[in-house]
Design a protein around this nucleic acid. Structure first.
Length: 478
RNA sequence: UCCUCCAUAGCUCAGUUGGUUAGAGCGGUUGACUGUUAAUCAAUAGGUCCCUGGUUCGAGCCCAGGUGGAGGAGCCA
């Protein structure tokens, strides 16, 4: 009958004090047969519900267990106790759904992240994960808001793609063929003309090429969708299914591109600080506690909040690949032979090199630009030196590469040459080449790994803990 | 895919040179207590020691293979 009040409102809206409220949520703890900590997901904070156990049916009281869902009607009053400002004095309490304490796996104590990953269906009910996923939502919203407020259009790039020219990684094949009985052509290979689309199709590894098509008419676009890579990578920074944000802007060059990416990331850090205060504070304190049990060398130099403030308020370092190599060659670990791999012009930077630059030398986000063409993608614009391309990677402390982008090759002859160099048949990318044939112009864009952003903003150290149901090699549970 | 480490109670872990009956804390249950904040106190239940094979009189412990997990590397976002 009476409308449910969300716990976030119960805790923050002073005008409700003295009034009767109805709250519904899940029991976090039940102490002394009298105090229920109830949470409904609207905030990380619980409301304390005070039960008059002397007058309650004992069998009903027994059903108030960790994890059970309740409907509580009662008066909101200022708390007699010290830990909270307000509490609800129960008038009526109904157990909506029981949670058998013998079987309910979440206890009011610390669990390991690995254990909770196996209980991915229930881990939303913990403080840490509810905070992470509220922040994940806020970041998703902030991304749309940033682009909308800056005149970008959200472009929906396809998830199933017939394009096989991207080369961004191994792809997941999409087919409706009977795998036990595939149709064959005369030479014995699989006859893909019989497949649903009449050709080989895969899940997208990037929406970039499609975003470029949009940008070259709409001016400023971005994609924000799921991306799939069938790489057998087993690290705390990679997923087989992840979400990527890819803005693309006509008439932008590499400097414009860097300016956009930096402004965007600063906006997101500030948005989190301004709009997710309770959750960020919780995760900040959680990390401080965790760090206490770690050796000095593994602790964070700055707290989570300090790191977010730092990104929001300080300019990123910008350095060319060539200068970065020179800097590494004159670094202490180089001279003391601490690098496992020697930095060398023409070879890609190793993780240890990036970490040195970001975490030891500059101690701030670093944008590395103008990489050698040899290990970058075919669509990146060739620089005047003929050796490097107008690429940029943004490296974050503890996360590594969070953004990768470039100014695109807009000159048709150069792009055709690149296709040849990379063994990409022109007939596969005819539609992409046509944008250079008809009204071509400078343009640039980048890709932001959404989960890596959420890792940075939450301080979580494993990417599997910032997406509800992680997809990794040998794991597609739930 | 490669390297290193790990797998014992519901959870976090200990377990001696290979030895007979595998332990602790937390959680659960039962009871006491009741304005608590990880409540407290007492009692109590709870085990395919990841799987398969091997060595041995005897394996949680040693060996081989497998599976799963973590950290690092590569690839990248």
């Amino acid at each position: 009958m009476t409308k449910r009040t969300k716990i976030v409102d119960v805790l923050t809206n002073d005008s409700l004090i003295g009034k009767e409220v109805v709250v519904k949520g899940w029991v976090r703890t039940f102490r002394s047969n009298r105090f229920i900590a109830l949470n409904d997901g609207s905030t990380i904070n619980n409301v304390q519900v005070v039960v008059d156990f002397e007058s309650m049916n004992e069998s009903e009281l027994k059903r108030i267990t960790t994890g059970a869902s309740l409907s509580v009607t009662g008066e909101l009053v200022e708390s007699q106790g010290k830990g909270q400002n307000v509490e609800i004095i129960v008038k009526a309490l109904e157990v909506i759904g029981d949670a058998d304490p013998d079987e309910y796996p979440l206890q009011p104590k610390k669990h390991s992240m690995e254990f909770l990953r196996e209980k991915a269906h229930l881990r939303f009910r913990t403080n840490t994960f509810s905070a992470v996923f509220r922040i994940r939502h806020a970041m998703s919203y902030a991304i749309h808001k940033y682009f909308n407020d800056n005149g970008f259009y959200h472009l929906h790039s396809p998830i199933i793609t017939g394009s096989d020219a991207e080369g961004a990684g191994e792809m997941f094949r999409v087919t409706t063929l009977d795998l036990d009985n595939t149709p064959k052509t005369a030479d014995g290979s699989i006859d893909v003309s019989e497949d649903f689309f009449g050709k080989e199709t895969n899940l997208t590894v990037s929406g970039q090429l499609e975003a470029e098509l949009g940008a070259l008419a709409l001016g400023q676009v971005y994609t924000f969708g799921p991306t799939f890579r069938a790489e057998n990578s087993n690290t705390s920074r990679h997923l087989a299914e992840f979400w990527m944000v890819e803005p693309e802007v006509a008439f932008n060059d590499l400097v414009d591109n860097m300016d956009l990416a930096e402004d965007f990331l600063k906006y997101l850090a500030k948005y989190a600080l301004d709009n997710c205060k309770d959750d960020i504070t919780f995760l900040n304190n959680r990390e401080v506690q965790e760090d206490k049990s770690k050796p000095q060398a593994e602790r964070n130099e700055l707290t989570l909040i300090e790191r977010l403030e730092f990104v929001a308020n300080n300019d990123f370092e910008r350095i060319t690949y060539t200068d970065a190599i020179r800097l590494l060659e004159n670094s202490k670990p180089y001279k003391k032979k601490k690098f496992k791999y020697l930095p060398e012009w023409g070879k890609d930077l190793q993780s240890e090199h990036e970490r040195y630059l970001v975490e030891k030398h500059f101690k701030k986000p670093v944008i590395i630009t103008d990489y050698p063409a040899s290990f970058k993608a075919f669509y990146m614009r060739e620089n005047e030196d003929g050796k490097t391309v107008a690429a940029m990677d943004i490296l974050f402390p503890g996360i590594g590469e969070i953004v990768g982008g470039s100014q695109r090759e807009e000159r048709l002859d150069k792009l055709k040459q690149k296709c040849a160099d990379f063994n990409i048949p022109e007939e596969h990318v005819w539609w992409y080449l046509e944008t250079r044939k008809f009204g071509t112009c400078k343009h640039a864009g980048f890709g932001l790994g959404f989960e890596r952003l959420v890792m940075f903003v939450t301080g979580m150290t494993n990417i599997r803990d910032v997406i509800p149901f992680p997809r990794t090699p040998k794991n597609a549970e739930f």
